[in-house]
């Protein structure tokens, strides 16, 4: 039987802790049930409030739509508030996520490959067996042949709104009709 396929959300790094415990004289008197925090909620919070990415960027990193991202993020904030106000413990646990694996390249056969067994380090190329393998940083994952192309489109980093770039007017002067923030020039990477 083949494994069931689920919609998964990308989490770059698993959290380093399993949860939080409240302290103080009132703790544990009434609300003893912990708040269950999902990995994707942790990731949404990390991307937005720790790494300071916009919701639009964060939703792309996690491979989910903007509305889905907004829902995950809202749920994360609501749970933190609940645990603080009600003095509940937070337990970070599963959810529909996967941990993006590390990628490597082989200098000999020029192949790229990932490491699905995160615990075991990569020592040789799975294709040609060469030991000349290098880890690829996410920033450098796009190879040299790729060029970034500036398009004649301004977009809103918050909601993704797009409009044609007006000739001779800086994008920053354009304001998103929904979010009231300045627009940016759109660039795409072509390989």
């Amino acid at each position: 039987m083949s494994p069931r396929l689920k919609t998964l959300r990308k989490v770059l790094n698993p959290p380093i802790i399993k949860g939080f415990k409240p302290y103080g004289p009132e703790v544990g008197k009434n609300n003893t049930e912990p708040v269950f925090f999902l990995f994707e909620e942790y990731e949404a919070l990390r991307l937005c409030d720790y790494d300071m990415f916009t919701h639009h960027q964060a939703s792309e990193f996690m491979g989910v739509s903007r509305p889905t991202f907004t829902r995950i993020y809202a749920s994360a904030r609501q749970k933190i508030a609940k645990s603080m106000v009600e003095g509940r413990q937070i337990t970070i646990e599963g959810g529909k996520v996967y941990f993006d694996s590390d990628w490597y390249k082989c200098e000999k056969c020029k192949s790229n490959f990932n490491n699905p067994e995160r615990e075991k380090p990569i020592t040789a190329c799975p294709l040609c067996g060469s030991e000349e393998v290098k880890s690829i940083e996410i920033e450098n994952a796009i190879d040299d042949k790729c060029v970034s192309e500036t398009k004649n489109i301004c977009f809103c980093p918050e909601c993704g709104f797009e409009q044609n770039h007006p000739q001779g007017v800086p994008c920053k002067m354009q304001i998103c009709p929904k979010c009231n923030i300045s627009l940016h020039r759109k660039t795409t990477v072509i390989c």
Partner: peptide
């Protein structure tokens, strides 16, 4: 990734 099948590009 979730099925732990290695991808070689």
């Amino acid at each position: 990734d979730s099925l732990k099948i290695q991808m070689i590009v």
